[in-house]
């Protein structure tokens, strides 16, 4: 279970990658990964191809990220969710709220 953060040179593209189970135990780490990225128009891309599982707390954490992104005039993109994770995103109908690139 890890959270990796990569910030592009222009600092407007922040990529956060989750490996393993994406659940409440990542709460603190996940928040830390984006809370200091306050440049206006920052694009957050959440890489979920290596996430094996996601629970409803993780969905809540994504909503918090979305709130943060909207506050700085940016956006959130979910990138390549694994099959299991995508199923959970579908049940929660998150594609109605943000872009999900399968």
């Amino acid at each position: 279970m890890t959270v990796k953060k990569v910030i592009a040179e222009n600092s407007r593209n922040v990529s956060i990658e989750i490996e393993g189970r994406f659940d409440f135990s990542l709460h603190q780490q996940f928040r830390e990964a984006y809370s200091s990225c306050n440049d206006s128009g920052t694009q957050f891309s959440l890489e979920l191809s290596k996430a094996t599982y996601m629970d409803s707390s993780a969905l809540g954490m994504i909503l918090l990220l979305k709130d943060h992104a909207e506050k700085v005039g940016g956006d959130v993109l979910i990138n390549r969710p694994s099959e299991g994770v995508n199923k959970i995103l579908e049940i929660a109908q998150f594609h109605r709220l943000m872009t999900i690139k399968v």
Partner: peptide
Amino acid sequence: AGLPDVYVFSKQGDIKNQIESCHPPMGVL
């Protein structure tokens, strides 16, 4: 809204309908 499929079973135990989530959970929007 955000739960696993809702099932309708017939008397014989066959699945007549499955109603999947069609809306984000309550309290998101």
